[in-house]
Simulated scan of single mutants.
Amino acid sequence: MELTDTHTHLYYLYGTPELASQMQRCFDNGVKYCLLPNVNSESIPKVLGTIAAYPNNCFAMMGLHPCDVKANYRQELLPIEQAISKNKIYGIGEIGIDLHWDKTTLPLQQEAFRIQTGWAKEARLPVSIHCRNAFDELFELLEEVQDGRLTGVLHCFTGNTEQAKRAIDLGLHLGIGGVVTYKNAGLDKVVTELDLRHLVLETDAPYLAPVPHRGKKNESSYLLDIAQKIADLHGIAVETVATTTTENAKRIFGI
Protein backbone atom coordinates (compact mmCIF):
# COMPACT_ATOMS: atom_id res chain seq x y z
CA MET A 1 0.00 0.00 0.00
CA GLU A 2 1.28 3.45 -0.99
CA LEU A 3 -0.15 6.58 0.62
CA THR A 4 0.68 10.14 -0.41
CA ASP A 5 0.58 13.11 1.96
CA THR A 6 -0.05 16.01 -0.40
CA HIS A 7 0.45 18.70 2.25
CA THR A 8 2.82 18.34 5.20
CA HIS A 9 5.21 20.72 6.94
CA LEU A 10 7.47 17.98 8.28
CA TYR A 11 10.41 20.03 7.03
CA TYR A 12 9.99 22.07 10.22
CA LEU A 13 11.92 19.17 11.76
CA TYR A 14 14.87 19.49 9.39
CA GLY A 15 18.15 19.39 11.30
CA THR A 16 16.67 17.40 14.19
CA PRO A 17 16.67 13.63 14.88
CA GLU A 18 12.87 13.71 14.90
CA LEU A 19 12.76 14.08 11.11
CA ALA A 20 14.27 10.63 10.59
CA SER A 21 11.99 9.16 13.25
CA GLN A 22 8.88 10.57 11.62
CA MET A 23 9.96 9.48 8.15
CA GLN A 24 10.49 5.94 9.42
CA ARG A 25 7.00 5.96 10.93
CA CYS A 26 5.71 7.13 7.56
CA PHE A 27 7.31 4.17 5.84
CA ASP A 28 5.97 1.82 8.51
CA ASN A 29 2.43 3.10 7.83
CA GLY A 30 2.69 2.97 4.06
CA VAL A 31 3.17 6.71 3.55
CA LYS A 32 5.67 6.75 0.69
CA TYR A 33 5.36 10.27 -0.74
CA CYS A 34 5.18 13.68 0.94
CA LEU A 35 4.59 17.05 -0.73
CA LEU A 36 6.20 19.92 1.21
CA PRO A 37 4.56 23.36 0.85
CA ASN A 38 6.83 26.30 1.54
CA VAL A 39 5.38 29.21 3.54
CA ASN A 40 7.89 32.10 3.30
CA SER A 41 11.49 32.92 2.41
CA GLU A 42 12.84 31.64 5.72
CA SER A 43 11.45 28.13 5.23
CA ILE A 44 13.05 27.61 1.81
CA PRO A 45 16.32 26.08 3.14
CA LYS A 46 14.41 23.63 5.33
CA VAL A 47 12.24 22.49 2.43
CA LEU A 48 15.25 22.05 0.16
CA GLY A 49 17.26 20.32 2.87
CA THR A 50 14.49 17.83 3.54
CA ILE A 51 14.02 16.90 -0.10
CA ALA A 52 17.80 16.49 -0.44
CA ALA A 53 17.73 14.06 2.48
CA TYR A 54 14.75 12.12 1.09
CA PRO A 55 14.83 12.67 -2.69
CA ASN A 56 12.66 9.65 -3.49
CA ASN A 57 9.97 10.49 -0.95
CA CYS A 58 9.75 14.26 -0.43
CA PHE A 59 8.89 16.83 -3.09
CA ALA A 60 9.05 20.60 -2.87
CA MET A 61 6.44 23.24 -3.46
CA MET A 62 7.27 26.93 -3.30
CA GLY A 63 4.93 29.75 -2.36
CA LEU A 64 4.08 32.52 0.07
CA HIS A 65 1.46 31.62 2.68
CA PRO A 66 -1.34 34.22 2.92
CA CYS A 67 -0.61 34.80 6.60
CA ASP A 68 2.91 35.84 5.56
CA VAL A 69 1.64 38.35 3.02
CA LYS A 70 2.54 41.75 4.48
CA ALA A 71 3.29 45.19 3.05
CA ASN A 72 6.67 43.89 1.79
CA TYR A 73 5.17 40.86 0.04
CA ARG A 74 6.75 41.69 -3.31
CA GLN A 75 10.21 41.60 -1.76
CA GLU A 76 9.29 38.37 0.04
CA LEU A 77 8.26 36.79 -3.26
CA LEU A 78 11.67 37.42 -4.86
CA PRO A 79 13.67 34.64 -3.12
CA ILE A 80 10.73 32.26 -3.60
CA GLU A 81 10.72 32.99 -7.32
CA GLN A 82 14.48 32.44 -7.40
CA ALA A 83 14.11 29.09 -5.62
CA ILE A 84 11.54 28.04 -8.22
CA SER A 85 13.92 28.88 -11.06
CA LYS A 86 16.87 27.03 -9.51
CA ASN A 87 15.24 23.85 -8.16
CA LYS A 88 12.94 21.05 -9.25
CA ILE A 89 9.55 22.15 -7.94
CA TYR A 90 6.32 20.15 -8.07
CA GLY A 91 3.81 22.85 -7.21
CA ILE A 92 3.23 26.47 -6.22
CA GLY A 93 2.15 26.68 -2.60
CA GLU A 94 1.14 27.25 -0.03
CA ILE A 95 -0.81 30.19 -1.42
CA GLY A 96 -4.33 31.44 -0.82
CA ILE A 97 -6.58 33.69 1.24
CA ASP A 98 -6.83 33.75 5.05
CA LEU A 99 -9.24 36.15 6.73
CA HIS A 100 -9.15 34.51 10.16
CA TRP A 101 -6.19 36.45 11.53
CA ASP A 102 -6.07 39.70 9.56
CA LYS A 103 -8.74 40.96 7.19
CA THR A 104 -6.86 44.20 6.48
CA THR A 105 -4.34 42.45 4.23
CA LEU A 106 -6.98 41.07 1.85
CA PRO A 107 -5.99 43.32 -1.10
CA LEU A 108 -2.36 42.28 -0.66
CA GLN A 109 -3.31 38.61 -0.38
CA GLN A 110 -5.37 38.89 -3.55
CA GLU A 111 -2.51 40.39 -5.51
CA ALA A 112 -0.01 37.84 -4.18
CA PHE A 113 -2.44 35.12 -5.23
CA ARG A 114 -2.71 36.55 -8.74
CA ILE A 115 1.08 36.69 -9.07
CA GLN A 116 1.65 33.16 -7.82
CA THR A 117 -1.14 31.55 -9.84
CA GLY A 118 0.44 33.31 -12.80
CA TRP A 119 3.71 31.53 -12.02
CA ALA A 120 1.86 28.23 -11.80
CA LYS A 121 0.14 28.62 -15.14
CA GLU A 122 3.31 29.79 -16.86
CA ALA A 123 5.32 26.85 -15.49
CA ARG A 124 2.44 24.37 -15.86
CA LEU A 125 2.58 23.55 -12.18
CA PRO A 126 -0.33 22.82 -9.83
CA VAL A 127 -1.17 25.05 -6.87
CA SER A 128 -1.78 24.18 -3.23
CA ILE A 129 -4.40 26.62 -1.96
CA HIS A 130 -5.04 27.64 1.64
CA CYS A 131 -8.50 29.04 2.42
CA ARG A 132 -9.69 30.07 5.87
CA ASN A 133 -12.87 32.07 6.44
CA ALA A 134 -12.63 33.17 2.81
CA PHE A 135 -14.52 30.85 0.46
CA ASP A 136 -16.42 33.69 -1.25
CA GLU A 137 -13.27 35.75 -1.75
CA LEU A 138 -11.32 32.74 -2.97
CA PHE A 139 -13.94 31.60 -5.45
CA GLU A 140 -14.16 35.11 -6.87
CA LEU A 141 -10.40 35.09 -7.42
CA LEU A 142 -10.40 31.60 -8.90
CA GLU A 143 -13.06 32.57 -11.41
CA GLU A 144 -10.87 35.54 -12.36
CA VAL A 145 -7.62 33.62 -12.86
CA GLN A 146 -8.94 30.29 -14.15
CA ASP A 147 -8.31 30.23 -17.88
CA GLY A 148 -8.21 26.47 -18.26
CA ARG A 149 -4.56 26.22 -17.23
CA LEU A 150 -4.89 26.32 -13.43
CA THR A 151 -4.82 22.97 -11.64
CA GLY A 152 -4.12 21.87 -8.10
CA VAL A 153 -5.57 21.22 -4.68
CA LEU A 154 -7.81 23.16 -2.32
CA HIS A 155 -5.90 22.03 0.73
CA CYS A 156 -7.45 21.26 4.13
CA PHE A 157 -10.92 21.42 2.65
CA THR A 158 -13.58 21.87 5.35
CA GLY A 159 -16.45 23.35 3.36
CA ASN A 160 -19.90 22.06 2.51
CA THR A 161 -21.00 19.96 -0.47
CA GLU A 162 -21.90 22.99 -2.59
CA GLN A 163 -18.47 24.54 -2.00
CA ALA A 164 -16.79 21.20 -2.76
CA LYS A 165 -18.58 20.92 -6.09
CA ARG A 166 -17.78 24.53 -6.94
CA ALA A 167 -14.07 23.94 -6.29
CA ILE A 168 -14.16 20.81 -8.44
CA ASP A 169 -15.91 22.73 -11.24
CA LEU A 170 -13.09 25.28 -11.04
CA GLY A 171 -10.56 22.55 -11.78
CA LEU A 172 -9.34 21.70 -8.28
CA HIS A 173 -9.04 18.53 -6.27
CA LEU A 174 -9.88 18.58 -2.58
CA GLY A 175 -7.27 17.88 0.10
CA ILE A 176 -8.90 15.88 2.90
CA GLY A 177 -7.15 15.82 6.27
CA GLY A 178 -7.73 15.11 9.93
CA VAL A 179 -10.91 17.18 10.18
CA VAL A 180 -12.79 14.37 8.43
CA THR A 181 -12.31 12.29 11.59
CA TYR A 182 -13.75 14.95 13.94
CA LYS A 183 -17.16 13.96 15.26
CA ASN A 184 -18.98 17.29 14.89
CA ALA A 185 -17.14 18.84 11.95
CA GLY A 186 -19.59 17.63 9.32
CA LEU A 187 -16.86 16.96 6.76
CA ASP A 188 -17.55 13.23 6.94
CA LYS A 189 -20.99 13.76 5.41
CA VAL A 190 -19.52 15.86 2.59
CA VAL A 191 -16.80 13.32 1.80
CA THR A 192 -19.37 10.54 1.64
CA GLU A 193 -21.01 12.37 -1.28
CA LEU A 194 -17.78 12.88 -3.24
CA ASP A 195 -16.18 10.53 -5.72
CA LEU A 196 -12.64 9.51 -4.77
CA ARG A 197 -11.36 10.73 -8.11
CA HIS A 198 -11.75 14.28 -6.78
CA LEU A 199 -9.84 13.71 -3.54
CA VAL A 200 -6.28 13.59 -2.28
CA LEU A 201 -5.10 12.96 1.27
CA GLU A 202 -3.09 15.24 3.51
CA THR A 203 -2.16 15.80 7.14
CA ASP A 204 -1.08 19.46 7.25
CA ALA A 205 1.33 18.24 9.93
CA PRO A 206 2.09 19.38 12.58
CA TYR A 207 -1.47 20.77 12.68
CA LEU A 208 -4.93 19.15 12.84
CA ALA A 209 -4.04 15.66 14.01
CA PRO A 210 -6.76 13.11 13.24
CA VAL A 211 -8.60 11.01 15.78
CA PRO A 212 -7.25 9.11 17.76
CA HIS A 213 -4.31 11.55 17.95
CA ARG A 214 -6.36 14.74 18.19
CA GLY A 215 -4.80 17.26 20.54
CA LYS A 216 -1.29 16.02 19.81
CA LYS A 217 1.18 17.27 17.22
CA ASN A 218 0.25 15.83 13.87
CA GLU A 219 2.65 13.87 11.67
CA SER A 220 2.51 12.41 8.21
CA SER A 221 2.38 8.83 9.45
CA TYR A 222 -1.11 9.59 10.77
CA LEU A 223 -2.29 9.78 7.15
CA LEU A 224 -3.23 6.12 7.52
CA ASP A 225 -5.94 7.10 10.04
CA ILE A 226 -7.39 9.59 7.54
CA ALA A 227 -7.36 7.01 4.76
CA GLN A 228 -9.08 4.48 7.00
CA LYS A 229 -11.81 6.98 7.90
CA ILE A 230 -12.52 7.69 4.24
CA ALA A 231 -12.54 3.97 3.51
CA ASP A 232 -15.09 3.46 6.29
CA LEU A 233 -17.27 6.29 4.99
CA HIS A 234 -17.32 4.82 1.48
CA GLY A 235 -17.52 1.20 2.62
CA ILE A 236 -14.39 0.18 0.73
CA ALA A 237 -10.95 -1.17 1.56
CA VAL A 238 -8.31 1.28 2.79
CA GLU A 239 -6.03 -0.06 0.07
CA THR A 240 -8.49 1.23 -2.53
CA VAL A 241 -8.43 4.69 -0.96
CA ALA A 242 -4.63 4.62 -0.91
CA THR A 243 -4.35 3.53 -4.54
CA THR A 244 -6.88 6.01 -5.91
CA THR A 245 -5.71 9.06 -3.96
CA THR A 246 -2.05 8.32 -4.69
CA GLU A 247 -2.83 7.99 -8.39
CA ASN A 248 -4.62 11.35 -8.17
CA ALA A 249 -1.63 12.93 -6.43
CA LYS A 250 0.83 11.55 -8.96
CA ARG A 251 -1.25 12.88 -11.81
CA ILE A 252 -1.67 16.33 -10.25
CA PHE A 253 1.89 16.87 -9.06
CA GLY A 254 3.83 14.74 -11.53
CA ILE A 255 5.71 12.77 -8.88
Rank of each mutant, 00 (worst) to 15 (best):
M1V: 10
M1D: 09
T4K: 01
H7F: 04
Y11K: 00
Y11W: 06
Y12M: 14
Y14K: 05
P17S: 05
P17V: 01
S21K: 15
Q24L: 04
R25P: 09
C34A: 15
N38H: 00
V39R: 02
E42N: 14
S43G: 06
P45V: 09
T50M: 05
A52D: 15
H65Q: 11
P66A: 10
D68S: 11
A71W: 03
A71L: 03
E76P: 01
I80Q: 09
I80D: 08
E81S: 13
S85L: 14
S85D: 15
S85T: 12
G91E: 05
G93A: 08
L99N: 06
H100Y: 15
H100N: 12
W101K: 07
W101P: 04
W101Y: 15
D102P: 05
D102W: 08
D102Y: 12
K103E: 10
T104Q: 13
Q110Y: 07
R114P: 10
Q116A: 10
K121F: 04
A123D: 07
P126E: 12
S128T: 14
H130G: 05
D136I: 14
E137S: 14
F139E: 09
E140T: 15
E143T: 12
G152V: 03
L154R: 09
L154A: 13
C156E: 02
N160H: 12
N160V: 10
N160A: 09
T161F: 14
E162L: 10
I168F: 08
L170F: 04
G177N: 11
G177W: 11
V180E: 05
T181H: 01
L187C: 04
K189S: 12
E193R: 13
R197Y: 11
L199S: 04
V200G: 07
T203A: 00
D204I: 02
D204H: 07
D204G: 06
P206L: 06
A209K: 02
P210D: 11
H213L: 11
H213T: 03
G215D: 00
S220C: 05
S221C: 13
L224W: 07
D225I: 04
I230Q: 01
L233F: 06
A237M: 06
V241C: 11
T243P: 02
E247Y: 08
I252M: 11
I252C: 00
